[in-house]
Write a protein that binds this DNA or RNA. Structure first.
Lengths: 187, 187
DNA sequence: GCTCACATGTAATCCGTTACATGATTCT
DNA sequence: AGAATCATGTAACGGATTACATGTGAGC
């Protein structure tokens, strides 16, 4: 029945409790988004497919506006989720990073332009890090409530990940400065 | 004329010297692949589009087998490349990391299964790091020849990036161990 | 003669984003 | 009354991978 990774994001979210498509998106936006983004265009069709496959069940919420539909995970859904979490096959991972890409091709740039590029990369990662830091208090409260420590641990991973790039840019900028010092004979 | 990022990978490669589609792929596979992957399915059609746009010129190589075609960057191509390298707009970056994704949802796993997940993530990054390390001698020789230090610097960035995940997995494994120590009352 | 590296290309398919359409409820 | 948020859904499009088709040249 071959589910895509995105299906597991949805299934995983429902594993933590029943949710609507809208709520799944909201939760994903403050957690998985930073290492696996999803959009409405995937969520709603996928929820239907998962229901047809018997991995989730949807229920129309009475009373509330225009048919809000809340989905829950089924036992079969939990099995599928567990099978994925422990699947010994390849862990897909890919990075598309325009900043590093540009840096790789930056030998045709003037030294000043290179530095500006590094600063721009740094600024971007700092901005995302600030976004993540803003989420932390909520995640901490969530851990206290539910006892789920992995969400917070993953968030901290995200913050450390951004920090890696900030440090990297600092290091590279210094390396470039050292290099041009040598070329110009120091002083 | 709105070029996609992949077009710039090709343009950037040609900026370092004339190449065939095949050669572009080979170079990308030992450099940009780790932060911006490309495939033949993109390269050949894109080379044609870039030629039509006047950013590259192709020339059929005489003598060699079934029409090998070598492309060079034009002055207009260099302008476009420079414009991209210094574009102050958003730097696209995205990560899809199944390992961290699974970890986020791993609260339903047994402690032993969690550790196995972390070990699998770690192993994968170590494997990629070894791949990168194998490329390094070639990159070092290339720098000595051409004076282009950024390719090597970028490769080292890739190695450090993999190391980040290796360290992360070690840290997380220790954190999980500490946690279960507390829960079981130590010993 | 066989296999491997070199070499080009396309078509099917998949995955995902973006933009759009629609409407209810809640807050100010 | 108006704005923001909640809420669902689809269609068009774009980007990229995969598989396939085809063929040459060099070395064993």
């Amino acid at each position: 029945m071959e589910l895509g990774k995105t299906a597991y994001v949805i299934l995983g979210m429902l594993g933590k409790g029943p949710k609507s498509g809208y709520e799944i998106k909201a939760k994903a936006d403050i957690s998985t988004r930073f290492f696996w983004a999803i959009s409405y265009g995937q969520i709603y069709p996928e929820l239907k497919r998962l229901e047809q496959a018997g991995l989730t069940v949807g229920e129309d919420e009475a009373g509330s506006g225009r048919g809000k539909r809340t989905y829950s995970i089924t036992p079969a859904g939990r099995d599928a989720l567990h099978a994925w979490l422990t699947d010994p096959g390849e862990l897909h991972s890919e990075l598309r990073h325009e900043g590093v890409l540009r840096f790789f091709f930056a030998d045709s740039l003037a030294p000043q332009e290179r530095v500006e590029l590094l600063r721009a990369i740094r600024a971007k990662h700092e901005r995302i890090q600030a976004e993540l830091a803003a989420i932390e208090p909520g995640a901490r409260a969530h851990q206290a409530e539910t006892g789920d420590s992995l969400a917070l641990l993953t968030l901290e991973t995200g913050i450390a990940y951004q920090q890696f790039f900030v440090d990297l840019c600092d290091r590279l900028e210094r390396r470039l400065a050292d290099e041009s010092d040598q070329t110009t004979g120091g002083d």
